[in-house]
Amino acid sequence: MPEQRSFTSRRGLLFGTAAVSAGALLTACTSNESNEAAAAENNRPAADDKPGKHVTIGFAGPQADHGWLNAINQNAKSRAKNFSDVTLETTEGSNDTAQQIGQIETLINKKVDVLVILPADGKALTQVGLRAMRAGIPVVNLDRIFNSSQAYRCWIGGDNYGMGLNAGTYIGEKLKGKKNAKVVELAGLDNLELTRQRTKGFDDALKNYPNIEKVARQAADFTVESGQAKMAQLLQAQSKIDAVWNHDDDQGVGALRAIEQAGRDEFLMVGGAGALSALQAIKQDKGVLKATVLYPPSMAASAIDLARALGQSKGIGGLSQYEIPASLTVYSAVVDKDNVDQYMSTGFK
């Protein structure tokens, strides 16, 4: 199979991380003369950074009990501060379904102009999304998707299947000359569809490398403690490992502790999400962690851009359509030592 470099291409740089929030996604939503001319030619107003109609955005995000989830909240808040015509009404954030439904209902009763919702459980919160839409409040569904497309006006989120696919391809290319290569997978929460998609993408990528066998898999629940415990189990059970695919850089902190304690360094490890600690380790290149596949929390900043455009009845510059798209999938670029400097500023704590 020819070498695949989609994960480090210029396209990946444009659609991978922070570029999505203020650059690639809404490139022409800044005051760019050529894009304004294109908008005028198509009789379509394009959102830009100039103050316009005031928009109150209700933001119902997650409980910040994880590095990536905290970064989601911070990206949304920081982006909203860039606009003098935006007021952001935020909830406390909750991973409890009933509590989050109550928080969203409060925002609906306040008659916010637009809602941005990252549901604790997409299926369980579908009805409250429908309620908002029927009340005339457009919903930007962030990442974990509702069961019905009628429950949101626009969905923006990560490419979980692509994340696993790119991780598997990266590992496959690194091990393609090695006979009987063995890899293990440290997954996240198995009751989440996103975890299943990441595994499926990884497994599909490995089908292209018949010399590689996935010999074990453990779910580590996205926590440091479980990451350490589950990685220790994998190391104890497998005397020979050539690569590890770890779904999440937070649980990867624990996994790396287990690896260090076991004194194992014969394999390479690929992480997931793009935590600052992971990017720094990749740059130093002194351990087993050689790459991470991005799942950029800057998608929350993009969600604020989309909500503002919806509230102002504007489209996205650079597109011929009058309306904003119904869905946007963020690209999962692979970051290794060759391109880590270009992504270092996007790392989250």
Rank of each mutant, 00 (worst) to 15 (best):
R257V: 13
Q236G: 10
V253D: 14
R257D: 15
L256T: 08
H247L: 14
I259K: 02
E266A: 11
M269S: 06
L235A: 01
V244H: 00
Q251C: 09
A258M: 05
A255P: 07
N246I: 14
L235P: 01
D265N: 10
K240F: 05
A237W: 01
G272Y: 04
L268R: 06
D250C: 14
Q261G: 14
Q261V: 12
A258F: 04
G254T: 01
G263W: 02
L256C: 11
W245M: 10
H247M: 11
V244L: 08
Q261W: 11
D248H: 12
E266W: 05
A273T: 12
E266H: 06
Q251T: 12
A255V: 08
W245E: 09
Q238R: 01
G263L: 07
S239Q: 12
L256N: 10
K240M: 11
D249P: 02
M269I: 02
G271I: 03
R257A: 15
H247Q: 15
R264W: 10
G263Y: 03
Q236A: 14
G263P: 06
R264F: 06
M269H: 04
A273S: 10
G272E: 02
A243L: 12
D249E: 08
R257P: 12
G271N: 04
D248T: 07
H247T: 08
L268Q: 08
L235M: 02
L256G: 06
E260P: 07
I259L: 06
G271T: 02
Q236E: 09
L256P: 07
G271K: 02
A255E: 11
Q233N: 13
V270E: 09
V270W: 08
G252R: 05
